[in-house]
Amino acid sequence: MNYLIDLGLLALSAAVINNFVLYYFVGICPFIGVSKRVDMAFGMGCAVTFVISIAALLSWSITTLVLVPGAPVSSFVASFFLSKEAAASIDLTVLSYIVYIFSISSSVQFVEMYVRKFFPFLYRSFGVFLPLITTNCAILFACLTIMSNIAGVDNPADAWDLGRALVFSIFGGLGFTLAIVIMSGIREELEICDVPKPFQGAAITLIVGGILALAFMGFNGVDSGIRRALTPDPAIEKTVLLDQGEGRLCRLSLDTALSQARRP
């Protein structure tokens, strides 16, 4: 149950509260470049979400199985050349950026082939934007966040499992879609407005993006609020001090103390 709550809050955080575009500033180039029409923006958002999920799957697997110190595949291969201990401490994280960017390019190639075969109309309407998804910061950012939550944690039990990695990436992509679709809707309206000449194009898009970011700031703290609503607050929890003899004092929560007292 706790795990599902964690996943739900992670999804909410990635999609809305810490939105990829409006909080982390990744994926700005398509945000400004592709957001002129709602249907194009929605298509771009879906393509990015699709690529990000494949890339997340690839990067999580490669990081956990090959790159981190003590990873199964690398220590197995190394055990043929080195002692067991040396093999277990092989650390390949220095190659992580190269591995991620190539797995992203391959994911994009894969998606391109798939779309060309099964959705030729969509492929034609995307034109050059599909290969350009490779340079979309959002996808590399998702991979980097997954890496820092696997390789960068003190306690190995806190490392992200596949579920968390996938939820974070997919909902991050959905958040990107949300932001880009909202922006394209606003820009369609702006087409018929009297924007001053120096601000036409990127400048007004950025200013509108700023106001959007301001609006999304209102979601700040929602996930921690939900989390706190679901867990008791130690700062004001009712507790009792029990004397367990030999001068040992023990502080228990009121509920625990009562349930212990009721037991024969």
């Binding site: 409006l22 500033f25 001053p196 400048a203 007004i204 950025l206 200013i207 700023g210 970011a213 700031m217």
Partner: peptide, 14 residues
């Protein structure tokens, strides 16, 4: 904060 970044860049770009 993030909104400030967008607004600053937009205004300077203009």
């Amino acid at each position: 904060l993030p909104p400030g970044a967008f607004l600053t860049l937009g205004l300077l770009l203009g």
